[in-house]
C-alpha cells in the first residue's frame, strides 16, 4: 500500500500535511500546559505524549526517509488515543466524535488500508463512545461514513485507470507505447494504400537497453533512453512517429516516404545519434533496418516482416 504515496510525492502538499501535524502538536502541548496550570498533574502525561508523537510525525513527514509514510500511522495513533481517552469522557456529542476516526483514516492512508482499518476498529469505537440505546443508529452512521470514504477512493482508482488506458505515450520516454504505435502503423498502412503513397518503417534496436539493471546502471539506462528519443524526435520530420515496441526496440514510422527519403532520414538520424555521449563516457550503440510494405502485401504479413527484421537485429548484436 505505501508504494502509492512516494511516486506522487510533491513538495507542497507534503508540507501542508506536516503543517497540520505540527499544528496538532502545538494544540496538544497547549492542552498539557493548561492541565499543568490548573494543577491536574495526573492528566498531563497523555497530551504531552501525543504532542511528542505529533512532533515525531511532523519531522518524519518532512524527512526524505523511505519509511516516511509511517508518519500517517503516528498521527492516527495520536488521534485515536485522544478520542478514546479524552473525548469518551465528555458528556454527550458521542455521535459527533464517532465520525472522526474513519474520516481521518481515509485522509492519511491509501483507500484500501483505510477501509481495512475502519472495518477492524469499527466495533471498538462503538463500544468506547456510544451508549447501548444509540448503538444501532450510530453503527449505521459509521457504516455510511466508511462507505462514502471508500467511494472517494474508488473514484480515484477509476480515474487513474482511465488515464493509464488512454495515454498513448510510453511510461519511461516520449515515444508512443507499443499498442499506440501499432495502431498508427495500421492507420498509415491503410492511408498509404488508399492514396497510393509510400510508407517506410525504420526498425531500431538499442542493445544497451537490453539487460535491465545489470552492468548498465538504472540511471544511465534512463539517460540513454531519454537522449535517444529526444534526438530522434528532433532529427526526424514532424509527421514521423516514434514508438517503443519493447525495452530496446523502436519503430520510426515514415509516412509518405519512399526508399530514398527513408535512407536520407536514416543517415541524418545516424549522424545525430553518433554525437550522443552517455554519462559513463560511452557512445550510444544502435542498429537500424529499413522496411517498406510491398505492393500487394497485407498489414499482417508486413507486421510479421517487421518482427522478423527486429529479431534479426537483436540476434546480430549477441
Amino acid at each position: 500500500m505505501p508504494s502509492l504515496l512516494p511516486e506522487e510525492e510533491k513538495l507542497w502538499p507534503s508540507r501542508l500535511f506536516a503543517l497540520v501535524y505540527a499544528a496538532g502538536a502545538v494544540l496538544m502541548a497547549g492542552y498539557a500546559l493548561w492541565h499543568y496550570l490548573m494543577g491536574d498533574y495526573g492528566l498531563i502525561p497523555l497530551p504531552a505524549l501525543l504532542s511528542l508523537l505529533l512532533v515525531g510525525a511532523t519531522l518524519l513527514r518532512l524527512s526524505h526517509h523511505p519509511q516516511r509514510y509511517l508518519s500517517a500511522y503516528l498521527v492516527l495513533i495520536s488521534a485515536y488515543l485522544l478520542i478514546a481517552v479524552e473525548v469518551a469522557k465528555l458528556e454527550g456529542g458521542a455521535g459527533l466524535w464517532l465520525g472522526l476516526p474513519p474520516v481521518l483514516a481515509f485522509l492519511v492512508l491509501p483507500p484500501a488500508s483505510a477501509i481495512l482499518l475502519n472495518v477492524l476498529l469499527g466495533g471498538l469505537w462503538l463500544v468506547l463512545l456510544v451508549n447501548p440505546e444509540q448503538a444501532g443508529d450510530l453503527a449505521m452512521a459509521y457504516l455510511v461514513l466508511t462507505l462514502l470514504g471508500a467511494l472517494a477512493g474508488g473514484e480515484q482508482a477509476r480515474q487513474r485507470e482511465l488515464l493509464e488506458a488512454t495515454r498513448p505515450h510510453d511510461d519511461e520516454c516520449e515515444a508512443l507505447r507499443a499498442s499506440a504505435i501499432r495502431e498508427c502503423l495500421a492507420q498509415e498502412f491503410y492511408r498509404a494504400r488508399r492514396l497510393d503513397h509510400r510508407l517506410s518503417v525504420l526498425v531500431i534496436h538499442l542493445p544497451q537497453l537490453d539487460n535491465p539493471g545489470d552492468a548498465f546502471g538504472g540511471l544511465t539506462r534512463r539517460e540513454c533512453l531519454q537522449r535517444f528519443t529526444e534526438v530522434t524526435q528532433h532529427s526526424c520530420r514532424a509527421p514521423d512517429q516514434l514508438g517503443r515496441l519493447s525495452d530496446s526496440l523502436f519503430w520510426l514510422l515514415l509516412p509518405d516516404t519512399g526508399q530514398n527519403g527513408a535512407l536520407m532520414v536514416r543517415q541524418r538520424l545516424l549522424d545525430a545519434l553518433e554525437r550522443i555521449t552517455l554519462p559513463d563516457g560511452a557512445g550510444l550503440s544502435l542498429r537500424m533496418a529499413l522496411c517498406a510494405p510491398h505492393d500487394t502485401e497485407s498489414l499482417a504479413t508486413f507486421e510479421q516482416r517487421l518482427e522478423l527484421k527486429a529479431h534479426l537485429l537483436m540476434e546480430s548484436t549477441t
Binding site: 456529542g93 466524535w97 465520525g99 474520516v103 481515509f106 485522509l107 450510530l138 461514513l145 470514504g149
Partner: peptide, 10 residues
Amino acid sequence: YGAWLWLWAI
C-alpha cells in the same frame, strides 16, 4: 447526523 460533519474533509 453530527458524525457526518467530518465528511466535509472527504
